[in-house]
Write a protein that binds this DNA or RNA. Structure first.
Ligand SMILES: [Mn+2]
Ligand SMILES: [Mn+2]
Ligand SMILES: [Zn+2]
Ligand SMILES: [Zn+2]
Lengths: 153, 153
DNA sequence: ATGATATTGCAAGTCTATTGCAATTAACAT
DNA sequence: ATGTTAATTGCAATAGACTTGCAATATCAT
């Protein structure tokens, strides 16, 4: 259970800590824009694209360049704080917080684009089978479903 | 079992027929470039990107514009003759023949890029589970593994 | 507060893929 | 065979996601 200071909202408090440690440990700086991007990802259920992050922060009157958004998600990803998701036929990457979340996959509505987490991964056994069949050493996998969400059916 | 005419090589004979029927049924024309692209895909084990198709046909002295390659694979895909594959972090689509092949998935070497077919799909049961859990109607899925091939280990 | 250097914004560039349009070619009727 | 019509092609321009160079700015250890 997380207890937040009365001087900050819970969300900011929670993320700020692990986040700042990770950045400093990597010799990187805690900047306004990095905090803004991370805070937005925390407040958002769906994985966001760079332009979505940019647009949303604009609306929130946070001044940030789109290039900086790209550089920021790149840094957050290499620190392991953020996962990059490339959904089929979307043509753009999306990013979501990893902090404290299990490895999982997604289903996306091909009509409206709504993305839902699938909190499961059925591929542990299959991975071993593939390794023995192909002689590859498996490092990672992607799995994604597409279809129609309840609203769009 | 396929018996080919002595007047044509087996590969051309096999593909040519279904291919021409599909095109005509859709009110499309059987052109030099479409035959060249399809013939190349038949001769190639790995799924090919548009630029790879373009480069290879150039080498074979087949005159074709890159735009035409894009338009050709698009048509072949919409006729159901070709599958479009978007591998994670490749930044370009690949295309492979569907004709007579089972639904399957791929593993890709992150070192050298070698792509191998995984002639299996473990997702039939999972699809039903997901449909009941999410209320989505599942239409399709993608599954891909990455790792190191035997040579790159 | 100061200095070293990481970060940012802007402009320009890269890469994949698409679109408009005039010239060409395939399909079909004569 | 020849002509007619519409699909296809090539070229140039365009779009969209993402990256890179560089000078200005912000962070942070001292
Ligand atoms: Mn998710
Ligand atoms: Mn394949
Ligand atoms: Zn998984
Ligand atoms: Zn499958």
């Amino acid at each position: 259970m997380v207890v937040s200071s009365i001087f900050e909202s819970r969300r900011i408090a929670v993320s700020g800590l692990g986040f700042k440690k990770s950045l400093k440990a990597a010799g990187r700086r805690v900047t306004r824009t990095r905090q803004a991007v991370l805070s937005l990802l925390e407040r958002t259920a769906q994985p966001l694209s760079a332009t979505e992050i940019f647009d949303q922060l604009q609306q929130e009157k946070v001044s940030i360049d789109l290039v900086t958004v790209y550089r920021t998600v790149h840094v957050l990803k290499e620190l392991g704080l953020v996962a990059q998701i490339e959904l089929h036929q979307e043509g753009q990457a999306r990013f979501e917080l990893k902090e404290g979340r299990e490895h999982h996959h997604h289903i996306r509505c091909q009509m409206c684009g709504a993305i839902v987490d699938l909190l499961l991964c059925p591929l542990k056994k299959l991975t071993k089978l593939i390794e023995s069949q192909t002689q590859y050493i498996v490092d990672d996998h992607t799995l994604e479903f597409t279809g129609l969400c309840p609203k769009c059916q």
